[in-house]
């Protein structure tokens, strides 16, 4: 029986490590590669920690398995009489301390770029204001060719659950909420930021690959939390501009005037203001 238990406590970490080894091949891994510049760095940091943690996990479990096996072999043995070892304590305090401090310091830079406004890229395009509400994402773009203002403007263009951004350039969204907390989470871009009632939070990212990415809510916001599904469409800059133009025209369409005329009227009105 004692060998069974030794085996038991040896097999489980092997199964655990094995699960992680086959996970990427089984699709139990990141939904896609990271398609944003910071996302790629986040993944690199993740793999760094995974390596360190993996080594520690395997090491401690080898030690544990060995001591268990060794200690259970002779039922008549008398245990060592020792209260510990000062040298060992010092070693296993200082070495992990160094590793942990390294992990902490090594992470700082990505966090700074992600959240500290003075470290944001300089050529940020303020693309839209995203307002979360139970249970949808409301998007307000500035009128084509105009900068985004804090307060809604007359020519602003609105959309729901469908955020378009140009690819290969850093874009910024102003994140806010109409009611409770929500969280703007785009798994493929590795972006997550809570929307906080009463505050506007700038979130930037640079998509590196055109595509359609899922947008979900990651902060409990009520019974319909799970269905706050939107998407982020990353497309070439000219496609993005064309999309905005089309959206603006649709919005200005009064049902009578041809869309193109309505659009030019809308632009004219804006210019007069």
């Amino acid at each position: 029986m004692r060998n069974f238990w030794c085996l038991f406590f040896t097999v489980w970490p092997i199964v655990a490590v094995g699960t992680f080894v086959i996970a990427p091949a089984m699709g139990w891994w990141f939904p896609t590669d990271a398609y944003s510049t910071l996302g790629q760095q986040i993944d690199d940091l993740f793999y760094l920690i995974l390596t360190i943690v993996g080594v520690v996990f395997i090491g401690t479990h080898i030690a544990l398995g060995y001591t268990l096996w060794k200690g259970s072999q002779d039922p008549n043995r008398r245990s060592w009489f020792t209260h510990g070892s000062h040298t060992l304590e010092v070693i296993w305090t200082i070495v992990p301390a160094g590793i942990l401090l390294f992990i902490a310091l090594y992470q700082m830079d990505v966090w700074r770029m992600y959240r500290v406004q003075s470290a944001f890229p300089e050529d940020l395009l303020e693309v839209a204001e995203v307002t979360a509400r139970q249970f949808e994402w409301r998007i307000r773009y500035p009128a084509p060719g105009r900068p985004l203002q804090l307060k809604p403007q007359k020519g602003d263009v609105y959309a729901v659950n469908d955020l378009h951004v140009p690819v290969n350039r850093p874009v910024l969204i102003q994140l806010r909420t109409m009611d409770v907390q929500h969280s703007f989470f785009v798994p493929s871009l590795r972006v997550k930021q809570d929307a906080l009632p009463g505050q506007v939070i700038p979130v930037w990212f640079e998509v590196t690959k055109p595509g359609i990415y899922d947008l979900t809510c990651a902060e409990l916001c009520g019974w319909g939390h799970y269905k706050m599904r939107g998407r982020v469409v990353a497309e070439a800059e000219e496609d993005f501009r064309a999309y905005l133009q089309r959206l603006a025209a649709e919005q200005a369409y009064d049902g009578v005037t041809p869309i193109e005329t309505a659009l030019s009227h809308a632009e004219k009105r804006q210019n007069e203001e």
């Binding site: 401690t60 200690g71 296993w92």
Partner: peptide, 16 residues
């Protein structure tokens, strides 16, 4: 440190 000490406790002991 605690984990290392627990493993250290088992080390050289009589395990039942």
């Amino acid at each position: 440190v605690k984990v290392f000490n627990w493993i250290g406790t088992i080390w050289g002991g009589k395990v039942r």
